[in-house]
Design a protein around this nucleic acid. Structure first.
Lengths: 344, 344
DNA sequence: CTGAAAGCGCTTACAG
DNA sequence: CTGAAAGCGCTTACAG
């Protein structure tokens, strides 16, 4: 910044010391009312603002929170960002965003780099590679060096910290039950690889719901997409060869791709096959038929994450006892559209 | 940050002065080779890293760039962010993101706040309100106080600075010509209000292309959506009452909504009506039929913006002459899909 | 009620 | 070749 007035200049102009200015500006009782007001008036008139960098150096706090994400081009992540942004700015913090592109190495770099720059804390969604390798040393180190972390969506048990997740397991049970109630018995699942925490939970919910009704889980009805960039091919093949009367997709793209291939095969949705997707977004309302969805409430997840982090930071700033670590569960919202039968 | 080793501690341990340490770490010829190496070795071993905040205070630079956006939940903006993020991180800068929600007040707050925090420069897409009011004092002030600004997509002539835009006018001419070549004569346009720079340019291109062929512009075939949150209603009404044999939509949502209502009316695309959308994204590939689109190349726009800004910052850092202000034009990419006829 | 001094972590012109 | 001093802008314990 160029041309900003400093305490030094105010001091010079008022013929007092810098310490006096500093105290007057904080309305300290140490300074006579008269002088205090004069200094404040002059400061205001000259648009004085404390230099945040100097405060940062002094306080070792930057009033900045870092958000580290795998990707950004997804409705879910955009919504999360929106929620975080709102809470963070309402509380006077700034938000730094870094992307990992699902690479562990980039995640480590980002965390170390930002910790060095004195961000006050992290909100983080683990990269695929991180979950795959279970390497969380960088997260632990961030915490150990005094940077609180909130994990959301893709989390890990290996780190003790605040977490925000959807009720993925329960939602999967619910979806499966709803499809069973429609009379579906050959329910398929299109999901991600097992190492992704969210996918695993959903798969488990699906399996448990089936088992509970004594229906055997048929592995051939589960597709674990191995290469997300090639999901369309894998899904095509899956649709071609597997016999299903309903499909649960773990995200919109998978589900919409499944829909496309079903239609090409001449199947009608929801007459022949019901379709439900996790993670509601733009897409679901524009396919034909529209997709019944479980909205993950990204914005709420973002807001919850930011709130948890800020509470912890405030406790720290006020030297109050740190709150206990908490895992907040955001309930998914069932959005009934046209890709499932209407009867319930 | 807690527990990081400082030059002071190194100095103490090595029994030298802090200045010596500082110089040795910068490999200054002033320090004897021997001492220099010893200090460097010790620093490395103890994972010394300079405190970025201290450097910031000293240099009045934070190695941080602020990105200010109206919204984030759009494929276009997500792509832009991705491009910016990549360039910025490859150059050792950090990225701060703030959203304006299309409000002028929030835009002003963000710019002032971040300028105060010594961000090195801004990349900014003007909010609707800013364009509507033509209030750019805050942008000018940021520039005047030494924070270079790059405007992208929604820009203004009122500020002299680097800019990155699509060739909106030319693209609109091209789309219109292509539709004319298909034999369409009653081409409709669904766009935004006039004060948005991008929308105006596209409308003008559309009009000029028609005029050039001696076709009169029929105002009833142009919809300027007044309330974006209510676009679906406005578009429904437009589709119901206006006679068109082709529609150009200024973004995916508008175009997909138009498609939905056309289908409900029993029109077939592209047999009865051709559809083209600006701003390619996820949606266009999942509607049926898929939408022919003009991809705005968000990622390229982001990369170009970041590159322009960084060049200017580097010039400043090296006290070289500032480059001339530049307006970079990113060409849209024509993506032929199924919502237009195939014959060309 | 006011101010000098030391400090946050670093740099650099100057002295020796 | 090495270091003391001043400075970036602010805070605060201490002295008067």
């Amino acid at each position: 910044m160029i041309n900003r007035i400093t305490q030094k200049e105010i001091a010079k102009h008022m013929n007092v010391s810098i310490s006096t200015v500093s105290k007057a500006l904080k309305d300290s009782y140490e300074i006579s009312k008269d002088l205090r007001h004069k200094i404040q008036a002059y400061a205001k008139q000259n648009k004085y603002f404390p230099n945040p960098i100097a405060l940062n150096l002094k306080n070792k706090s930057s009033q900045t929170i870092a958000l580290i994400l795998p990707e950004i081009i997804h409705h879910f992540f955009s919504s999360v960002i929106k929620g975080i942004e709102e809470v963070i700015h309402n509380n006077g913090y700034n938000l730094i965003i870094s992307l990992t592109q699902d690479s562990l190495e980039k995640e480590i770099q980002n965390v170390e780099n930002l910790a060095q720059k004195n961000v006050d804390g992290f909100i983080l969604c683990l990269s695929k590679e991180t979950q795959w390798n279970n390497s969380i040393a960088h997260i632990q180190e961030a915490i150990d060096t005094g940077h609180p972390v909130v994990l959301f969506d893709r989390v890990t048990d290996l780190v003790e910290c605040d977490k925000v997740i959807s009720n993925d397991y329960e939602s999967a049970i619910q979806v499966t039950n709803n499809l069973l109630a429609e009379g579906r018995r050959k329910i398929g699942l299109i999901t991600t690889q097992d190492f992704i925490s969210v996918g695993t939970l959903r798969t488990k919910g699906y399996e448990d719901a089936l088992n509970k009704l004594g229906i055997e889980v048929d592995r051939s009805r589960i597709l674990k997409v191995s290469n997300v960039d090639n999901s369309n091919e894998e899904i095509k093949e899956f649709i071609d060869k597997s016999e299903v009367d309903a499909i649960i997709g773990v995200n919109e793209t998978f589900t919409a791709q499944a829909l496309m291939h079903l239609r090409k095969k001449g199947k009608s949705v929801p007459e022949d096959i019901s379709l439900v997707t996790f993670s509601d977004g733009l897409l679901s309302t524009f396919t034909s038929p529209n997709l019944t969805a479980l909205d993950q409430q990204g914005m709420q997840m973002g807001m919850a994450s930011a709130t948890l982090l800020i509470k912890r930071l405030e406790a720290k700033a006020k030297k109050r006892q740190a709150p206990l670590f908490k895992t907040e569960i955001i309930e998914t919202k069932w959005i009934k559209r046209d890709s499932t039968k209407k009867q319930f």
